[in-house]
């Protein structure tokens, strides 16, 4: 049990997919304009990660090595399609806001990376907790980035205005702002790491 919890926890800080492994940055930057979008994308990606990790850990023995990657992609794409359909049916507004970045979860390096590096070598339960940890780590990173961007770029959090008279820097809601925030955050975490070492 302790090992499983460890598998879960490592994705959150020690191997955080965004800040430590620098994987899956495309959706992170694109959708982190508002907290709502960030949380939505985090949950969607977590679902796909969990599903694909478990299925791949289940079938890992029965597929020949040469067609492994295509098989992974099919498994992942299936979960992404499910996510797409569910989102279109139950939350069309979120689906519109996330746009092409929902189908693009297929090529999110985190998902394929975990499938190849972890789920294909480990047991189902381990893979489940690995997927969950990575998903939560990814979601937390998204929450951090989108909170910064929504607060400074629009003056709101979850759409609620916070401080009266605050003039938001619109650029943080735009692509250059996303690149800037992630660059500075990566630098900040590097600094913490250097200080510890």
């Amino acid at each position: 049990m302790k090992k499983l919890i460890n598998e879960f926890l490592k994705g959150i800080v020690r191997e955080n997919p965004t800040f430590v492994l620098a994987l899956g940055l495309c959706p992170t930057l694109a959708v982190s304009v508002t907290l709502t979008n960030g949380v939505g994308m985090g949950i969607a990606a977590t679902f796909v990660l969990l599903g694909s990790n478990v299925i791949i850990a289940l079938i890992k023995g029965s597929i020949p090595e040469r067609i492994m990657i295509p098989c992974y992609i099919v498994v992942i794409a299936t979960f992404v399609t499910i996510t797409e359909m569910v989102m279109k049916a139950y939350s069309p507004a979120l689906d519109r806001a996330l746009g092409i970045y929902v189908p693009l979860i297929v090529v999110n390096c985190i998902v394929l990376g975990r499938a190849e590096a972890y789920a294909s070598k480990n047991s189902v339960s381990n893979s489940f907790f690995d997927g969950l940890g990575m998903g939560v780590g990814f979601t937390l990173a998204l929450i951090l980035i989108s909170a910064i961007r929504e607060f400074l770029g629009a003056g709101t959090l979850f759409g609620h205005a916070l401080i009266k008279g605050f003039e938001p820097a619109l650029v943080l809601g735009m692509p250059p702002g996303a690149l800037l925030v992630i660059g500075l955050l990566l630098g900040f975490f590097n600094m913490l790491k250097n200080r510890k070492a």
Binding site: E167, P168, A169, L170, V171, L172, M174, P176
Partner: peptide, 8 residues
Amino acid sequence: VFLMASWP
């Protein structure tokens, strides 16, 4: 350009 994009 930062100011221009932020506070047009």
